[in-house]
Design a protein around this nucleic acid. Structure first.
Lengths: 127, 127
DNA sequence: ATTTGATTACGAAACAATTCGTATATCAAT
DNA sequence: ATTGATATACGAATTGTTTCGTAATCAAAT
């Protein structure tokens, strides 16, 4: 019995998954309105993407009413893990530590974030 | 004066850049032989990829002898930063901390690695 | 000089991702 | 019933990536 090999979501698909993970059940319009804030896109483009995601099994779809309701089917943690692992391999030659430092070296991490990571590392060390 | 907008390398291009960053100057055959260890690929496929990378300005090419010599033109740190930033946005909703924890939560990080990250974080905090 | 082997050049096929126009269906308001 | 607004379905164009076959070129060995 083999796991049904989950194919890696594309960038556009990730944008949509983010929204579904946060909001839960969504119509195409729900998703599209959020997407529009950060991106130029036609409605039917978003629709088509979500239909394809359904074909791929990334999302479920409730078609009982005229307006379909979508929901993420793939797990957020698992998907993130999958993508991070790939990046560690493909970009950082297998070293998780180097990825971490690169991610933190940037301005992007705030003092609070750094503290919470420290705490997390302490937890890890204990084991 | 605008920066010459460096387009994000594809996965295959990253595989090749990794090799060039490590080895320095390489012929197509050099690269191909290393690539073959971890991947099925024809020689002309590798050649074509490197030619395209040259067109894109990712690598330089010395054609003074019959066998051309390639070298990475893009900076390793900058490229990694670019890809990590994109992933933080696209996969982790802008939170570097969450990416870091995801990367570390995995089996992958050893005790030594964790310690070196801690040290790094202390340096960061001081500023 | 000819052959052999390795190299680059070129083009095209195969595939995947993205975008959107147009057609069709449904429902609610008139 | 008709209209208008909104939804999905479908197909196709566009663009980017990957793959590789074939031809042309060159150099070394015979």
């Amino acid at each position: 019995m083999s796991t049904p090999h989950q194919t890696k979501p594309t960038e556009s698909e990730m944008e949509i998954l983010q929204i579904l993970w946060e909001k839960g059940d969504c119509t195409v319009r729900d998703v599209h309105e959020i997407l529009e804030k950060s991106k130029e896109a036609g409605y039917t483009t978003t629709l088509k993407l979500m239909q394809i995601m359904h074909e791929k099994g990334l999302v479920s779809r409730d078609t009982s009413s005229k307006t379909h309701i979508y929901r993420a089917l793939v797990n957020q943690q698992k998907t993130q893990q999958q993508l991070v692992s790939k990046m560690i391999d493909n970009v950082f030659n297998g070293s998780a530590a180097r990825l971490v430092m690169q991610a933190l070296g940037n301005h992007s991490a705030s003092k609070d974030e750094i503290d919470s990571i420290k705490k997390y590392l302490d937890e890890l060390s204990k084991k």
